[in-house]
Design a binder for these strands. Sequence first.
DNA 1: GCATGATCATTT
DNA 2: AAATGATCATGC
Length: 223
Amino acid sequence: MNSNSPPASIDDLCQRARALAGQSIATLAQRQNITVPTDLRQHKGWQGQLIEMSLGASAGSKPLPDFPKLGIELKTIPINQQHKPCETTFVASIPLLTINQETWQTSLVRKKLARVLWVPIEGDRAIPLAQRKIGMPLLWEMDAAFETVLQRDWEELTEMICLGQLEKITARLGTYLHVRPKAANAKSLCWGIGQTGEKILTLPRGFYLRTMFTRELLAQYYA
DNA sequence: GCATGATCATTT
DNA sequence: AAATGATCATGC
């Protein structure tokens, strides 16, 4: 599914990424010999995988960064007509029963967000998918200012999960990071910790980045 | 079920 | 219009 070789270096990756800017989804799909779906309703991950292939990322569901050798995570980010992110960004699933063993320093969230190649893509549903264009990618490293806020969010939300306050957690909590369901449907359940410390069946949850976070991030570099 | 990739659809 | 809560596809 991927005949593209992985980038040999960060410079190599950056060059490849920059070369995508201005290209359309149709163009990239043709190069990979794949068909563009009418829309993303039943193909929600398709666009991300197209970019992975186009940049030589290791495809598949391995729990590794997209570019293992470089330690870089790839994230596409849908942007509106004002070039602002119009969706949240999924970061990681939450191991509800064992996250008490984690700290911010050891957390998957911190690992995944340490270095990210953000690839903006037009996401306006009025634009046919095939015609949407790639924006200028940004190789980003978490800085102290962002980390301070992310850490605080992570610690507050993680504490609530550990204390059995799962049912009190809503997506309204958290400045940059928040917690939302991450499931196939409402019947997909997993075990979590309830109010009195008992195990309860609940929806799987994940950490997501608010649009405000990616909006500020992109604005810093493209302002 | 949980990892990968997210967007959809409804509410606010 | 933006945010929240729900959902879709695929592989192991």
